[in-house]
Structure formats: C-alpha cells, structure tokens
Amino acid sequence: MAAKKTNEEPETTQADVSGGPKPWVFVLMVLTLYWAINYLDGHSGGFNATVYTPHSDAAAVASLKVQKTPEEQAFESGARIYRGLCAACHQPNGLGNSNAGFPPLANSEWVLAPTPDRMIAIVLNGMQGPVEVSGQIYNKVAMPAQGVALSSEDIANVLSYIRRNGDWGDAHSLPLVTPEQVQAVRDSDAIVNRSAAWTADELKQQFPESQ
C-alpha cells in the first residue's frame, strides 16, 4: 500500500488534436443571433426601466391606465374637496348636525333645486340668518364664504358631488354642475357687487327662477 505511485503525467505535446466547430455552427449562431434580436424586440420592453414582464413596451403599460369619464373625475375631485372643507360641519354623510345648527345637505330642497345657482351663490359668499331646511329652522351659525378659496371648477365639482351623490338619496341624480355655470353666477351683478353673506330671503329674491 505504501508503495508510491508513479507519476505518469500525460505528455502535453502538440497532442491536442486541433479541430474545431465547422462553419455551419457559425451559421447556426448567426441564425440564433437573428432570433435573439427578435426575442429582445418582443420581450425586453425597449430596455425601458418602467416596463416589467409580461408587458411588451412602455406604450402598452401606459394604455392600461384607463382614463376616467368626466363625470367620475368631477365626482372624485368634488368628494375630495367635500371631505376637506364641508364635511366638518355638514358631516361626511351629508346629514348635518341639527343640535349644532348645521343644516343637512342630503335630500335638502335647497340642494335639489332644478338649477344650482342658489347653491353656487351660497358657496361663493356664504350664508347667515335663519334658514328652513326639510321643515326645520336653523339659525345658530353662519356659513363662511368660499369664493376666494375655491376656483370655479372646484365649486362645480363639489356641487356636482353634493347634487349627484347616490349614497345620499334617490333624488340626488341631478346633472353635472359645470364650471361655466359657476363662472356665470360669479360674474353676475348680484355677486360682483356683494361682499356680505346671503340670507335665505335675499337668495329667494335674487334667484327666484330656482324655485
């Protein structure tokens, strides 16, 4: 066992028989290169950092972001404004708080009027004094003016949300309030010449056609 083995190493002569891949191998590789270019074309997403499998290119990914309808966009934007500005008093469910003197918006005859002009005026300049909503008189607090803080588009959106909010009642399916409508009220003499908040009687007088 202890006998040391011999070191018969292979003679590294030119023994390495030369011989390599035949030309057709290279032809095959070029064909594979053609395949590879096509494959990369279809699967690499244009080497764009924002394309992930299995999307084919950036345009396909972008097309998946479906544009929302104008109604939905207005409704969502209005909901956001309502949560930020209005919900503190009128409550997220639109029922107001009769003890604290905040009138409801849901199923209110003021909100559900055929045209939104009165509502626009209230939002623009605010409101004070007694007002009767759904058979109850509210006279504790005044509503501050929002005309400076909100653009016409914002006011249109938030009023659309209030007037079209299906969760608040079946009657809330009125058409969209458009920014043009808001702008028309904003530019009318009654608003331009006025800085004080409205009272209920003045409103009824100024916008009688809303009745």
Binding site: T32, A36, L40, H43, S44, G45, F47, V51, Y52, H55
Partner: peptide, 15 residues
C-alpha cells in the same frame, strides 16, 4: 426588475 434583464438572461442562456 425591468423586463430587459430577464430577456437578456434568456438570450445569453441560449448562447
């Protein structure tokens, strides 16, 4: 990771 890394890996594996 972006799709090209996987696609490139497939191509190199074939070669």
């Amino acid at each position: 990771v972006p799709a090209w890394l996987s696609a490139l890996s497939t191509v190199t594996a074939v070669f």
